[in-house]
Amino acid sequence: NNNINMCPGVGEHPLQYNYTFWYSRRTPSRPASSQSYEQNIRQIGTVASVEQFWRFYSHLVRPGDLSGHSDFHLFKEGIKPMWEDESNRSGGKWIIRLRKGLASRFWENIILAMLGEQFMVGEEICGAVVSIRFQEDILSIWNRTSNDQMTTSRIRDTLRRVLNLPTNTIMEYKTHNDSLR
């Protein structure tokens, strides 16, 4: 389903926002330019309720079972998972690097916290990404306003709580501007 106007079904539990799943995969020979990124990323479905989320999610491959250089993105409907999107342009992301084997569990926990509005930062959250790489996997959560320190601290603290991260986990905040340079 790529419907723009997904609605909760009768008796279902609505989400605060609709969310769209995206998938991207890069072949190592291709350059990582923004154009090829846009060409390689595709929408795979939008959900509007808790029940729609589970129906969709249950059919997806677990990220930890993906091979190569692949990403799942879950973003609020209407926000492209690219820094160029207006909602992301002044934003940034918290990055958590994970050793192999942890991605599926942490990805599920981060997206449940996002769908359930556990971050308590108003409109600030844009989406979350799990990136499968060769040596390690990377989780990130994107927000709109990178220079709003109250918000970024609150997101970090919520992440620590909901993910119950190993104590030696390093969390790093990057503005999308920095990523661009």
Binding site: V10, G11, E12, H13, P14, L15, Q16, V50, E51, W54, R55, S58, N109, L112, A113, L115, G116, E117, Q118, V162
Partner: peptide, 21 residues
């Protein structure tokens, strides 16, 4: 306005009982 908040436990319960409560 009011926000729709769900904790992890509730979301997981919805997974195991797909029929609306």
């Amino acid at each position: 306005g009011t926000r729709i908040i769900y904790d992890r436990k509730f979301l997981l319960e919805c997974r195991s009982s797909p029929v609306a409560k």
